[in-house]
């Protein structure tokens, strides 16, 4: 294959390289029942580089008034590379006042993490964040 043809082929690859959650993924289907998962409303924050993969700070914020009529029912966290891909689920409701969760997670290597929020009106929203996780510099068998 000529170099120019090859480069053109590479450029034509889909731009959706930030792996969003696949709505057909069985883990996601359990929550959405096949409903579309839209981009927006959710902001997932992870550091760019983890200090240590055993404990990484994570913040999930969902833009919602958190009223009886319009609130976040649950937030589902998915890992791309962890052995257990559904990392956690958080169940909120109008009594939360604010849809924000902070926690610390384990990440088995560099990957993308996705948060899916289920709203009271039945809609689903997501955000994805990428993080670099390296192994410790020295072997520790203490």
């Amino acid at each position: 294959m000529r170099r120019r043809q090859f480069l053109a082929g590479v450029a034509a690859l889909p731009a959706a390289a930030l792996a969003q959650v696949d709505p057909l993924d069985p883990l996601v289907w359990v929550v959405t029942n096949g409903a579309p998962v839209k981009q927006g409303k959710v902001t997932l924050t992870l550091p760019q580089l983890a200090d240590n993969g055993n404990s990484v700070p994570i913040r999930i914020v969902v833009d919602s008034p958190m009223t009886e009529a319009d609130h976040v029912k649950s937030i589902h966290l998915y890992s791309e590379k962890n052995p257990v891909r559904n990392m956690a689920n958080f169940y909120l409701g109008p009594r939360a006042g604010k849809a924000e969760i902070n926690s610390r997670v384990r990440l088995a290597g560099s990957q993308k993490v996705t948060a899916v929020a289920k709203m009271s009106d039945g809609s689903f929203w997501q955000d994805t964040a990428a993080i670099v996780v390296t192994l410790s510099a020295c072997l520790d068998e203490s």
Partner: peptide, 29 residues
């Protein structure tokens, strides 16, 4: 539970760090 009513629940897994830390919000009633 806030005065007996559940205001927050979480399903956790091995993907949550040891000595788990969770921070959330609730309305003071």
């Amino acid at each position: 539970r806030y005065d007996g009513v559940e205001v927050f629940r979480a399903d956790l897994s091995s993907g949550i760090a040891a000595n788990p830390y969770v921070q959330f919000y609730t309305v003071a009633q």
